[in-house]
């Protein structure tokens, strides 16, 4: 898959061999008026993609919620009034009020917990994605560019990490920490998750390394760092971004899963996964305590998956 995405705009065949419609069009006539980069082309596509628009609106909404939860509710997620609110039912008429989505077993506002829980999920999702992208890209590029023994060594290391079951590995690692903050969870997931990006980056780099424009740069006497950062990285970045955005949703789901299993964020942290776990005990008498945080996880994961899908369609010229 990564190999195909590299072709980028290079997919046009030599002039006299045009055989597909797309080529016929690209090879003819004078150039259009303004400069168009891959990114502006992608943006042109994205703007017209309803999938992208819906997911982008949802993601912006979630990000705002994660950064400024105070904008959405004045109620504290940790304020518990057991006597008054024990498993209070949702009060659908009181939109954005403390009792809008009801109360949990300790009398805490579920609405407030949903709002404040976004921060944990999004921080973990974005944090892990950034970390795996950086680690994976560096390892993949080094392996792909230098080849030989470096590649053999790094590829075997990648294979070893790939062999560790993701959730089981995370369970084991997180179990050994007593104080499981957001950063610990991010580190644990990133430690296990970089392999996918590394493989994609390595594949992309190997393909790009052989392309004529890299050979041309070498013939000019360009340095290794120039070839890596001016020629290879900008061309490899599209498939990496695609994989990273799609993976982001998965990391959010993974955090929720780990929290549900009790090895995610600590009990004091506000997180959707933890709330789902606690809600399970009241499933019979108060199903809303489980359903509402679960729906939030689903919406968030789905938003990022849709977003990643839209980005892939825009950046992968083979689908055009």
């Amino acid at each position: 898959m990564p190999d195909k995405t590299i072709a980028a705009k290079v997919d046009a065949l030599p002039g006299d061999t045009a055989s597909t419609a797309g080529v016929v069009v690209t090879d003819s006539g004078p150039a259009p008026e303004k400069a168009r980069s891959l990114w502006s082309d992608a943006w042109h596509d994205l703007r017209r993609n309803p999938l992208f628009l819906v997911s982008a609106v949802l993601i912006v909404f979630l990000l705002v919620m994660a950064i400024w939860p105070g904008l959405f509710t004045g109620t504290s997620p940790t304020h518990a009034d057991l006597a008054k609110h024990y498993l209070g039912k949702p009060n659908w008429g009181h939109v954005f009020a403390g009792d809008w989505l009801g109360y949990d077993v300790q009398g805490r506002s579920i609405y407030a917990r949903v709002v404040y829980g976004a921060r944990a999920s999004i921080t973990v999702g974005v944090g892990v994605t950034v970390a795996v992208t950086v680690i994976g890209t560096i390892i993949g590029m080094v392996a792909g560019y230098f080849g030989g023994w470096t590649d053999t060594l790094l590829s075997r290391v990648t294979d070893i990490f790939l062999g560790i079951p993701f959730l089981l590995g995370a369970l084991v690692i997180l179990n050994s920490f007593d104080d499981r903050t957001v950063w610990v969870v991010i580190m644990a997931l990133a430690f296990l998750g970089w392999t996918q990006i590394a493989r994609v980056a390595r594949g992309a780099v190997i393909t790009i390394k052989q392309s004529d424009y890299v050979v041309a740069a070498k013939a000019l006497g360009a340095s290794t760092s120039r070839i890596m950062f001016r020629h290879i990285l900008p061309n490899a970045v599209a498939p990496i971004i695609v994989v990273a955005t799609i993976a982001l949703g998965g990391y959010i789901a993974a955090e929720a899963t780990l929290s549900f299993l009790g090895v995610g964020l600590g009990d004091s942290a506000v997180s959707w996964g933890g709330d789902v776990a606690r809600g399970r005990e009241q499933l019979r008498i108060a199903p809303h305590t489980l359903i509402i945080p679960s729906v939030m996880v689903s919406i968030t994961v789905l938003s990022f998956l849709m977003f990643g899908d839209a980005v892939r369609n825009a950046l992968d010229p083979k689908l055009r």
């Binding site: 002039g15 006299d16 061999t17 045009a18 055989s19 419609a21 080529v23 016929v24 069009v25 090879d27 003819s28």
Partner: peptide, 9 residues
């Protein structure tokens, strides 16, 4: 024909 002439299409 040359490329874009429509011969293949």
């Amino acid at each position: 024909g040359e490329s874009g002439s429509g011969k293949s299409v």
